[in-house]
Design a protein around this nucleic acid. Structure first.
Ligand SMILES: [Mn+2]
Ligand SMILES: [Mn+2]
Ligand SMILES: [Mn+2]
Ligand SMILES: [Mn+2]
Lengths: 219, 219
DNA sequence: CTTTAAATTTAGGTAAACCTAAAAAAATGT
DNA sequence: ACATTTTTTTAGGTTTACCTAAATTTAAAG
């Protein structure tokens, strides 16, 4: 089947919200998509008619198996394009999302296959999020929150949940990116801030607000 | 200003038709866009309102300076993407047009600037058509038709006006592509066919139908 | 168990981009 | 010049994806 840009955006947003809430509700989807609840209801009916959605009036909704598969192909396209934009065209990570939001709707299957080969089958996008393969499969890295790593433990940055320019600026300043090795030196109970060593070199202090947005895995 | 996918497709098609006819008429545009005359009239009013078009009811229409500029940026995007698809992703030339037809509508200006740099500022697309620069300027190669090159003259293939798979197959078979050197050995008055030497090596016979679609410049 | 508040859906409407059929204008043939 | 054909426009629909405002359902509070 073939989907409109709007349908694809709805599907992807529902998928995203499902990572947090088992069942999605109308208002949160409306907020996510910058639209109104009434518009969401319209689209829900359409997606249900196309058999991508489990939906009961007033009770919330979620993607069924078919819907999930579609969502994963869109996520795959989005993240491959983001990877392309950063590694080949030299964009900073905070600039790629909006562009990938458009590119992800280009529908050629062969295009994505070839792009994937050209990029050497990357496993994660510039924000550390996993890229599903052609069949929608991916290995979710088990994410530990830097805010909860105890002192003296060494970890590697796997992803960052806040992908704003401000966050990027802060991380760049401290030479932290996806794949960087960190060691928690000291935790300050007073404000939740932590002192860390970056790549076995410089140390720096991160506020709790920052460390909560950084996800890591064990060394 | 910002244009819809539909508006951009109309603008580009009008531009294309203007290369052949000074003033464009409703029916030919409808045919070009696979739509109906009434739909074209609707869009003409809109483009006129947006001041991109010189248009007088029943009298035909053409892009004004502003419209032309827009057209050239869309052509630029289209051809850069085609070049990317062929040189980086390894597509054959007959497969890229439809995909570029979608990619050309991705609106980021920085994307196209960076893509252009990444590709090393190519001058022509895979079909030999010139790629306009950021300001819409390009040097139109003066096109000679292979069907009119006299015997014993050597030329270089600059573009091919029929970009079908069938044409590609025939050219591939004879090792002819953009940039290939050709020498006209003999012209046969009987059917307009010509014997040519390809890259100073093998010779082959091209029908008039084929040679008319190949454009060349002097060695 | 009501009453009130919040979430969701329905009703009815708009704009973009299409369409068919009919009317109007321009071009053509004799 | 006038009738006929062709081209183009207008009139009036449709579909998609939005919207606001009102009605309905569910959840929360007293
Ligand atoms: Mn999108
Ligand atoms: Mn991402
Ligand atoms: Mn297009
Ligand atoms: Mn081309």
């Amino acid at each position: 089947m073939n989907f409109s840009v709007s349908e694809e955006n709805y599907i992807k947003s529902i998928y995203r919200l499902q990572q947090q809430q088992e069942v999605v509700n109308t208002n949160s989807l409306a907020q996510e998509l910058n639209t109104r609840a009434a518009s969401v209801t319209d689209m829900l009916k359409k997606l249900q008619l196309k058999k991508l959605l489990d939906y009961e009036k007033y009770r919330g909704f979620k993607l069924n198996a078919a819907g999930n598969k579609i969502a994963l192909t869109i996520v795959r396209r989005h993240r491959l394009w983001e990877y392309f934009l950063v590694t080949k065209l030299g964009f900073e990570w905070d600039k790629v999302h909006a562009i990938a939001e458009e590119l992800e709707h280009v529908s050629s299957i062969e295009l994505i296959q070839r792009l994937d080969s050209f990029l050497d089958h990357p496993q994660t996008d510039p924000h550390g999020d996993p890229i599903p393969d052609v069949h929608g499969k991916f290995t979710p890295i088990k994410q530990l929150n830097l805010g909860e790593i105890p002192e003296k433990k060494s970890v590697i940055v796997s992803s960052v949940s806040n992908q704003s320019s401000e966050m990027l600026e802060l991380l760049n300043h401290n030479n932290i990116k996806i794949g960087t090795g960190l060691r928690v030196i000291k935790r300050f109970a007073f404000d939740g801030s932590i002192e860390i060593k970056v790549n076995k070199q410089a140390t720096c202090i991160l506020s709790e607000q920052v460390s909560k947005n950084i996800f890591v895995y064990h060394d």
